[in-house]
């Protein structure tokens, strides 16, 4: 009986293990592909992630790397009709360097996405492949390159890998949430800064903005939070490389060091402000 149990446990472990492609051993950081489903039905959508693990002290980069570095780059190798959604990035951390501030991740990080199976897919085995390039840095940087692949069965009944499901579920929890519309975010371009304004009746003692785009915000500059009742404003110093006025200010806003939100604040033109002042 106990032998049977052991072999059952072993089988389970093996099955779970298959959810992830074998991590590629490379210098100071490793990457693997995590696919939630072991079998997917035609027309279904499942979760998927790219999981990075860095050695202590090493980091990889966010979509906006900041003053140096480079975000991971993906080239998917997929069967015809299969598509991958846009990558969703967890909230990054600030990394100070001798010359500025970078944005990235240390330890374990999962970039989140989805896998869409076409309705016309035929039952059988397919392979999800990824050509991945990324930069791992400590005091020095090492470019890394690996090819990952994971098998996936197309069947009439779906099944999931429990361990992959758990990894992706906790990864999803680490993604910044959409900012509630009640916050009404707006951005104003001033001569030397952006003013990011929003409305919140909650007590806010700290707010930190991570710009999604390069060449917008001076990454090392302090961000000043001001409150006028419910109206909050965050002054963000313009990057010295700022050239083109964006349509909106996109990024991640972390409130009270805890709640991370995706922000897409439309730019309020100075003409509109003047008009509203005249009223």
């Amino acid at each position: 009986m106990s032998r049977l149990l052991t072999s059952c446990a072993c089988l389970l472990l093996c099955v779970c293990g298959c959810a992830r492609s074998t991590p590629q051993q490379t210098a100071h950081s490793r990457a693997s592909l995590v696919v939630e489903q072991s079998a997917a039905t035609p027309g279904s959508r499942g979760n998927l992630g790219i999981r990075f693990v860095t050695d202590t002290g090493w980091h990889i980069y966010w979509q906006n790397p900041g003053d140096s570095g480079e975000p991971p780059r993906t080239q998917w190798k997929l069967p015809a009709g299969v598509t991958i959604g846009a990558l969703e990035w967890p909230t990054p951390m600030r990394l100070s360097t001798a010359v500025g501030t970078d944005y990235g991740y240390q330890g374990t990080t999962v970039l989140f996405s989805s896998l869409q199976i076409p309705a016309t897919a035929q039952p059988g085995n397919i392979e999800v492949g990824l050509d991945l390039r990324w930069l791992a840095c400590h005091d020095v940087c090492i470019p890394q390159h690996t090819r990952l692949k994971t098998p996936l069965r197309i069947a009439n009944a779906a099944s999931i890998h429990y361990s992959a499901h758990q990894i992706l579920q906790s990864a999803a929890e680490r993604l910044p949430k959409p900012l509630p519309p009640s916050y009404r975010p707006m951005a104003t371009i001033l001569p030397n800064s952006f003013l990011l304004t929003f409305v919140s009746s909650e007590p806010i003692t700290k707010a930190e903005f991570f710009p999604a785009e390069v060449e917008q915000i001076e990454n090392s500059a302090p961000q000043e939070l001001a409150s006028h009742g419910k109206n909050k404003s965050l002054t963000l110093k313009k990057s010295q490389y700022f050239r083109q006025e964006p349509q909106s200010l996109k990024g991640v806003l972390v409130i009270n060091g805890r709640d991370a939100y995706q922000v897409d604040a439309p730019i309020q033109s100075s003409i509109k402000i003047r008009r509203s002042h005249q009223k």
Binding site: D67, E70, A98, G100, E215
Partner: peptide, 16 residues
């Protein structure tokens, strides 16, 4: 036409 741009690369390894 492009007088400034964000420089990319490794951070300069200045004396700490």
């Amino acid at each position: 036409a492009v007088p400034t741009s964000r420089p990319y690369g490794c951070s300069v390894k200045y004396a700490k």
